[in-house]
Every structure is written in structure tokens, then in C-alpha cells.
Design a protein around this nucleic acid. Structure first.
Lengths: 271, 271
DNA sequence: GTTGACTCTCCCGTAGGGGGAGGGCGCACA
DNA sequence: TGTGCGCCCTCCCCCTACGGGAGAGTCAAC
């Protein structure tokens, strides 16, 4: 009387399909209690039903199988709760992203694109404290916020004053391949001692076509589109990595609608 | 001066990766304005930037590419808005599902499973108005609600009175393969004229191990687990399709916590 | 002519399974 | 003793929406 189930009975007991159970066996998420060495038939026990129910709940929350495995094999309750909380946090940020996308879509469909004010200017060569890394474009926002925070901390620790707005330099590959070199800098006088990721860099001069984008970076692709249209219609040569200047940004206010970001496409290379 | 872009420039203008643009070309979602017949190089125009921006917004909402194509090629604005609204509705129901899953998970982790009251009874053979179809298990809830509504409508149109609670019969394949035959029936006296999907059926007698599940069907797998454990531990033979009786269900109240569903596993076949 | 950045096609991989082929196992029914 | 049915097995291909990388052609500048 081992009270065991064939895979079919177990699937009906748990409402997981036979295919799914085999998949969970393959990936080691839920191993049958026993396997008949002759026939290869899987056998599940009643003890495994609650486990399967838990797995089902996590899958309903779109938790990846690997994470579920981690939760189930967590050594203690706090560890387990931490993993669960991390996933719930991710769900919430997904929800926030969705809300932003809905709002943005509505704006795009209802209102015509706002008039844009494109200009040209020369960005002078400056010395700056900078952080450079290869990043993924979808992490760019949180990355540059973190990097900017670190830069400001390093400057104030060395009693240095920023001599202009913070900026960023982004390789083309970052956009066309979703991954590439990125630099955030804060211009300042003289050299900065290297602390953590911070080092001193000379930001070269460049001629830019520029446009100031207002609001959250969710919609910044609209500004890029306008700028691209402008340079295409004026048959300008575009070359080199992109510039952004954070005139008003997360370091100034949490109110995203107040942000002002100047984006600049380099027109000529200046060596 | 065609104001056109290479794929790389267009990707930077729209923040869509080169890979993504090629994929959209392949699937016909966004065809380049021109393709050099010699080199195969794709060329995009400034006109396509707003289209790409719209596509990006829909993708941010996880709309499938096929649906986006439908939206973009919608013949008129109402059709388009309908498609969008349908997708937003789906997003909301996903959100509701997530909320339910969180609540259910919390309950499962914090509270022990409630004691269950398993019994056995014989379901007598009855004549009933019934609807049978092959359905997908994830549509089961809305399917049976619709079917039940149709049954009640047919009965009242013919001035017939239900002689017992409504029930369902579900093939095992429905659970083990996520798709299978399902029947919803309302017992009544005499034959019913076939209207729409409704026909008269004899529901055979069967010996059942039963359990009354309280609350929303989100958690009904717990009841199934208890029942499966019971029959396994009592070494009962289980055979034939599953029964459910909707003692209190969506036809009675919208308050899901008040629902009472008796689920029954057939113990013996009764011909 | 050569470099280096860019582009092309083609193939493979992802997560979480679904669909189906081809074959073995076990039991009831005639 | 078939034979039919309903299980179960493995193996392989399919799906979405791309990403990674190989190998080869293209373009513009130096």
C-alpha cells in the first residue's frame, strides 16, 4: 500500500498536465518518488501533492522554474521569504512598467507629437569624473542613476564642485545591439582620485545636433526619432557615440515630469 | 534626398535593435521602405519612425506581433480601438489572476490546509438538459458559466424546472492533457427541445467519493488533491470522468467565497 | 589597398511546455 | 487467444520574440 499514483492520476490530482510533470522531472523540479526500472513508468506519492500545489501557485505568478527550485530548496524560512519577496517586487515593477506603457500609448494615439526644438551647438572638451561600463540597454536607467550617485559621492568626498551638468556618452551598439559601452560623467576641475568605479576622463569636444526632452525616459525614443528625422532631412553626417546631458534629472527631483534631458547626436567627428 | 536610414541608423532612431528590425521584416510587421537588390541592404525612411514607435509601445504591453499587425492594418479607427481594448482587458484579467495567485499562495504558506470532509454517495441516473464540448482547461471556468447560462435560458424558455443542482462531467484528458471533453447539465423532467448547443442527455448513475469545496475555483486543485489522497489511501479503483455539482455557484451569487462545489471521483463504473 | 565599421544570411539557443509519431504494457472482453 | 483500448514511454519538432555568433559581402575613409 504505497499510495502511489501513475503520472496520469497524479496529473488529475494536481491539475498539472502529463507533459508538464514530465518536464518538471526532466528539469529536476519535481522528481517522481519512484521509477519502474523495467518500464520507465513514473510513480508519485500523496506526499508530493502539496509540493505540486505550491509549484502551481508559483507558476501562476510566472516565477521561473529555476527560481521555484531555489525557493523549494531554501535552507530556512527567511531565505525562502526573501526569494518570494524579490519575485513579488519584480511583479510590481512589471506592473508599473505596464502602466507607464499604457499611458504612453494613449498619449501617442491621442495627441500629435509635440513640436520639437532642435538646435546645434558645440560641446567643449572638459575634464570630468567618469564611470564607464558595458551595460545592457534595458538596465541603462537604473545603471546611470547608480553611477551618477557614485560620482556625486566621490566628488563631495574630495570636496570638488561640478562645473556643469552631468552627461552620458553611449556607444551606438548600445541601441542597435541592446548592449554596449556607456559612460556617465560629471565635469569638474582637476583630477579625481580613482575610487571604486570612478576615474578621471577627458570628454572630447563634439559638434552636436541637440534636442531637450521633457519628462520620463520612457518616452525618450520620441526625441530620438525627431532628432534622427532632422539629421536625415538635413543630410548631416552622423558619427560617433551619442551624448546626453541631464539638465534636470533624478539627482534633482523624483518628479519625472520635471526632468529635462538634452540629447545630442554628433555631427562631425572632432578627433 | 530620400532621407533614408540604414538599419543601424534606424535602430538608433527608434531604439529597436537591429535583430529586432530584421525580425519584424521577416514576419512582415515592419517592412523596410526599400531593399537594395544588389546588396540586400535594408533602407528605412523617416515616415517609418512613428510606426516603429507605436510598435514599441504595443510591445511594451506584451502585445503579440500578430496582434500588432492586426492593429496597424485595421481598416478603421473603431476596429483598431476594439483590438486595443481587448488587449487591455486581457492585461487586466492577467492582473486579477496574479492577485488571486498571490492571495492563494499566502494562504497556502501561512495556513495549514483546512480539514476536509470526504464522503461517498451514489449519484442517481437522471435526465438532463446538457451541453457537451471539447474545451481547453484554462477556458473551463468561463466556458461552464456561459454554458450554464444557456441551459437555464433554454429551460425557462420551455417552462421547465430544474430538479436538482447543476453539474458537470469532465473527461480525464481535460486535466492530464489540458484539453478534453466537458459536459454541463441541469437535471429536469422530460426531454428538452434542442436549442443552440443544448440537447437532452441521460446522466448515468455513478458511485462517487465526494468533497465539497468552498470558495473560488482558483483553489479547487486543493480539493482535488485531498480527494486523490483519500482514494489512494483507501485503495479504491478510480475510473471514468469526473463529476462536479454546483451547489452554490456563479448562477446564484457573484460572491465567490460563498460558492460551494461538490467534486466527485467515480469509484466504480456503473455501465 | 587596407582598415574598420557596417551589413547580409544562416544556424542554434532560450522558457515552458504542446503536438504527435512510434512503440511497449496491461487488462478486459469475446 | 486474439484484439482492442487506454495507458505509458522516448524522441523529435513546433511555438514566441528575439539574442549570439559564424562566415561573407559592402561601404567609406585613409
Amino acid at each position: 500500500m504505497p499510495s502511489s499514483f501513475t503520472i496520469g492520476d497524479f496529473s488529475r490530482a494536481t491539475h498539472l498536465t502529463v507533459k508538464t510533470l514530465r518536464h518538471y522531472h526532466e528539469t529536476g523540479l519535481l522528481e517522481p518518488a519512484q521509477i519502474d526500472p523495467q518500464t520507465g513508468y513514473r510513480r508519485y506519492t500523496t506526499d508530493q501533492i502539496p509540493v505540486a500545489q505550491i509549484i502551481r501557485r508559483f507558476r501562476d505568478l510566472d516565477m521561473p522554474l529555476g527560481e521555484i527550485r531555489a525557493v523549494l530548496s531554501a535552507p530556512d524560512v527567511p531565505t525562502r521569504n526573501e526569494l518570494i519577496a524579490a519575485h513579488l517586487t519584480r511583479l510590481e515593477s512589471d506592473l508599473a512598467r505596464t502602466r507607464r506603457a499604457v499611458a504612453s500609448l494613449r498619449g501617442l494615439l491621442e495627441r500629435p507629437a509635440p513640436a520639437t526644438d532642435i538646435g546645434r551647438r558645440t560641446a567643449n572638451r572638459v575634464t570630468a569624473a567618469a564611470i564607464s561600463e558595458v551595460v545592457d540597454v534595458k538596465d541603462a536607467l537604473s545603471w546611470y542613476q547608480g553611477a551618477l550617485g557614485e560620482l556625486h559621492a566621490a566628488l563631495s568626498a574630495q570636496r570638488k564642485i561640478a562645473t556643469g551638468p552631468a552627461g552620458g556618452i553611449f556607444a551606438n551598439a548600445l541601441f542597435s545591439h541592446a548592449r554596449g559601452g556607456a559612460t556617465v560623467f560629471v565635469p569638474c576641475e582637476g583630477a579625481v582620485s580613482a575610487i571604486g568605479r570612478v576615474s578621471t576622463r577627458v570628454v572630447p569636444a563634439v559638434e552636436l545636433a541637440t534636442l531637450v526632452h521633457a519628462g520620463s525616459h520612457t518616452n525618450i525614443d520620441l526625441a530620438y526619432g525627431s532628432l534622427a528625422t532632422y539629421v536625415a532631412q538635413h543630410e548631416l553626417a552622423v558619427e560617433g557615440p551619442l551624448r546626453e546631458y541631464y539638465l534636470v534629472g533624478p539627482q534633482d527631483t523624483l518628479e519625472e515630469s520635471a526632468w529635462r534631458t538634452e540629447i545630442g547626436w554628433p555631427i562631425f567627428r572632432t578627433g
